[in-house]
Amino acid sequence: MIWQIDFWLLVILIVAAVTALSLHDLLGAVAALAAYSFFVALLFAQMGAIDVAFVEATLGAGITGVLFIIALFLTKRRTED
């Protein structure tokens, strides 16, 4: 348990979250979201919750990303905000 790991992971999370929300290219935003989920999973594992990390990695980063991307392909990729 080294607190710096947690700290930097959290900083990355915030950066990823802001990126996901501010990108005008939705595919990029979704990618940022997937990265965000993945880092959340890492953080979970770091905090001792391996089960949760596993689920977050498969469901949160995996399936959610896939669903988002399908939805993106069926709709528009760009957005004004």
Partner: peptide, 16 residues
Amino acid sequence: KRNLLKKLIGMNIFQT
């Protein structure tokens, strides 16, 4: 955010 997908991304961040 006005874009619905962005809203969803926000929702994911919020829940996480």
